[in-house]
Simulated assay, not measured.
Amino acid sequence: MNSETRISRLGRFAGRFCREENGNSTLEFAFYFSIFFLVLAAGVEIAYMNLRHAMLERSVDRVVREIRLSTGEIPTYEQVRLSICDQAVIVDDCQNNLMLEMVEVDPRNVTMMEPNPDCRNAQEEPRPVRNFVHGKDNDLMLMRACLKYKPMMPSTGFGKELNLDTEGYAQMIVTAAFVQEPR
């Protein structure tokens, strides 16, 4: 069989293949299903991220309220972190991935916290707390909680757009302000 015969056979096969309509619905299904799945995955990722953020914010607010209203003992950093993690039920591995900062702020000369929060993930070595100061009576306090978490689907849709660290963790930051009640 010479090369011209092979080329003509290949040309006839390609012509028949292009005219044939069998399998069109399969191609359409595969194309539209993959797009639908990416949109669905992004929606699930966003919903779970919002739920995780809401639970973290709620637990920080509740703990800040306890600190603000408590007139007895002053809780330690570990007690505050443990209390936040106990109340943020949907947050995975909170004990190892949550870092807190609390600073006293002068209301007449406001200086905000350092712009880059102190965050760490469970893969990193533990490091000392950067700033956790209990205020005196009637002091304005700022508390910032930084949680590192692993996205559910880091390679699809919204998860791909998150700012991830080298181990694949994204960060979530919650800030609360309160005035320390007199003890």
Rank of each mutant, 00 (worst) to 15 (best):
V39T: 09
I74T: 15
T26W: 05
G15T: 13
V179A: 10
R19F: 09
E78D: 13
V64M: 08
E45K: 04
R58F: 08
E167G: 00
L38W: 06
E4K: 10
M143H: 02
K136Q: 09
Q79W: 02
R81A: 10
M113G: 05
Q123S: 15
F132G: 07
I7W: 11
Q180C: 01
T156Q: 03
E124I: 04
L142G: 01
L100I: 13
P107L: 09
G43C: 04
V129W: 03
P128K: 08
M153N: 10
V133G: 00
E21H: 13
R120S: 12
M153L: 15
I46H: 00
P182W: 05
P107M: 10
R6S: 04
M113F: 09
H134N: 08
V89R: 11
V110G: 01
S3Y: 12
E20T: 11
G43A: 04
F29H: 04
V44T: 03
A47R: 01
M141A: 06
R81G: 03
A122C: 02
C94L: 11
M152Q: 09
T26I: 06
L140G: 05
A30P: 02
G11A: 14
C85G: 08
F31Y: 10
E181A: 09
F37A: 09
V103D: 06
R183M: 09
M112K: 05
G72C: 14
L162H: 09
Q95T: 07
